[in-house]
Structure formats: C-alpha cells, structure tokens
C-alpha cells in the first residue's frame, strides 16, 4: 500500500499539471488540511510513511466542505477518512464511500518536491 500513491503520481505524470499548495510542514501528520485548487476544495492527508493522499473536501452526504476535518485510519486495511458530520468512511485511495455505494468523491494525485506539497490537476486534452 505504501507505494500506491507514488504509482498514481507517475501514471498521471504526462497529463498532469502540478500545483504547489503548501509546505509539508504545514500539514499535521495523520490529520487533514484543505487546499483551494482551481476553485475546487481538496482535502490532503499526510500519513507519515503511509504516504500522502488527496480527495474532494466536499462531503456528498453531509453536504458541507468538511472531509479534511475527519479522523483518518484504516478499515479492513483500506485507508479511510471518517466524515466529521455523519461518520461515513471514504477511501483515501479510491474516494469510494464504504457505507453508501452511490457516494463517491474525486481523488487527486499528490507529490512532495523539496518539502513542498503539489496537487495534480488533470489537464483536459
């Protein structure tokens, strides 16, 4: 699992534009931060050696921009964040909600370059 995020980053390399959002030090390990990326709110989670993850900040069930303020952990081995509003879990890897199959959030590529966190924005062809 640890390498997973790196693979995502490489896969997107060609069609991805990277946006510098903050220093790695600005993030609290095992907690979320929220970045504004081209008008979208992106929740970023820094899980020490488990890597960095980024998903939509908007909770489609609670209908508020709060996911970065949820508790992160794992459920049956899947890294998740629990929405602080009604506690549904969203996979940090796929964005899928574990409790409600219709609920799903976007995931984004993240990388760290020289201590700075970059979010991948897919460039339309």
């Amino acid at each position: 699992m640890r390498g997973a995020n790196l693979a995502v980053a490489i896969e997107f390399e060609e069609s991805t534009e990277w946006m510098d959002v903050c220093a790695l030090d600005d993030l609290v390990p095992w907690y979320g931060g929220c970045a504004l990326v081209q008008g979208r709110q992106v929740a970023i989670f820094y899980l020490n050696e488990d890597g960095l993850y980024a998903i939509d900040n908007y909770d489609p069930i609670g209908k508020a921009n709060v996911l970065h303020r949820g508790i992160v952990g794992d459920i049956n081995g899947e890294l998740v964040v629990a929405s602080p509003l009604y506690k549904q879990h969203f996979s940090l890897i796929t964005g899928q909600c574990l409790e409600k199959k219709e609920a799903h959030v976007e995931t984004y590529a993240v990388r760290v370059v020289a201590g700075r966190v970059h979010i991948g924005v897919r460039v339309p062809d």
Binding site: L47, V72, D74, V80
Partner: peptide, 10 residues
C-alpha cells in the same frame, strides 16, 4: 493492529 479509526482514536 492496523492504524486506528474514528472509534478507537477518540
């Protein structure tokens, strides 16, 4: 075991 969750952490 594992990494914890929103039940055990609080």
């Amino acid at each position: 075991r594992g990494r914890g969750c929103d039940i055990c952490k609080p």
